[in-house]
Design a protein around this nucleic acid. Structure first.
Ligand SMILES: [Mn+2]
Ligand SMILES: [Mn+2]
Ligand SMILES: [Mn+2]
Ligand SMILES: [Mn+2]
Lengths: 159, 159
DNA sequence: TGCACAGTTTAGCCTTGGCTAAAAAAGTTT
DNA sequence: AAACTTTTTTAGCCAAGGCTAAACTGTGCA
């Protein structure tokens, strides 16, 4: 007796049928939500990394690493400031607030889990870095935990 | 003698150091590129699914499943038409062009690989569907191939 | 047949996140 | 100190993708 007998539709049909409209809509809504916070997170994470590795986070460096113009960075910095994530004085380095540091730390951790998971799957480093940069914002806590555990096992088994 | 001796930086430093600025910038650029085509692909894929499963793709149904207003859908349909992906006459169902069908098919395949990969990792169905909807657009061909192979092995081993 | 209602389209608003050009401030060199 | 260069900021343009409100079309039912 299969264990899925009273557990929803036959798995063999699970791929060919569409989910009910409301569930389907929630999928896309989750993606839109992720996209709203995505760029903010990447900026905060990058600023944290620059502070750690270079000692300061200048607009020029942020622009170079983001691959955008300084004007774009300047306006984003203002937004981060408005949201209480960074402090900045004109013509000076940018610093993270307590909230900013928390967000940077969480993003860094999440990014690392996804990146190492991809590496442990056998994806080459450059590709893994590109994929992780986008995927990280669309991975639920559930999936993140599973990825982390997978990586841990992979690394232990490889000793 | 470790095999990575002449193969770039010591792996133990690979996570703590930032990539060179140009490579870093390319990461973010890849994400921005993905976001440009992402919504188009989801619309085309959804229209294809509706045509297959419901026989026609009406704006109302698209709006309900996307979780957006009909006005939003109407304008998107015009864009898809401009790009030669759909044909549509006023107040009638939407159909895919040859190009549209190709895109729908590719998206459907890619979406399926990511979804089944997540399931085979042990992620529950509802969560897997949400994560796949976002992740699918940020998975390189390389990673997609590895995911596919992983899923295949997992399923064969489970027999 | 005519009318009401559901579906569709259009017009116009807003925010986000790119961009360029130009002004202003800071830093460096002579 | 003055001049030059780099960095930062500001102003304003554009496209994408949400939204509401209102006009329009088509369909089904009285
Ligand atoms: Mn990212
Ligand atoms: Mn999809
Ligand atoms: Mn998607
Ligand atoms: Mn995305």
């Amino acid at each position: 007796m299969p264990t899925y007998s009273d557990n929803g539709p036959d798995p063999s049909e699970q791929d060919t049928n569409l989910p009910p409209p409301e569930q389907h809509a929630r999928q896309y809504a989750a993606v839109r939500d992720a996209h709203e916070t995505e760029l903010i997170e990447d900026y905060v994470e990058l600023i944290g990394d620059l502070l750690d590795h270079a000692g300061e986070a200048r607009a020029t460096d942020i622009a170079a690493r983001m691959g955008v113009r300084q004007a774009t960075v300047a306006r984003m910095i203002r937004r981060l400031n408005d949201q209480g994530l960074v402090t900045n004085e004109p013509y000076r380095s940018i610093f993270l607030t307590e909230r900013g540091r928390t967000m940077a730390e969480e993003s860094r951790k999440r990014h690392g889990v996804v990146l190492q998971f991809l590496r442990s799957l056998g994806v080459d480093d450059a590709t893994a870095r590109i994929d992780a940069e986008g995927m990280e914002h669309h991975v639920s806590e559930t999936t993140l935990g599973i990825m982390h555990e997978f990586t841990r096992r992979q690394n232990n088994g490889g000793d």
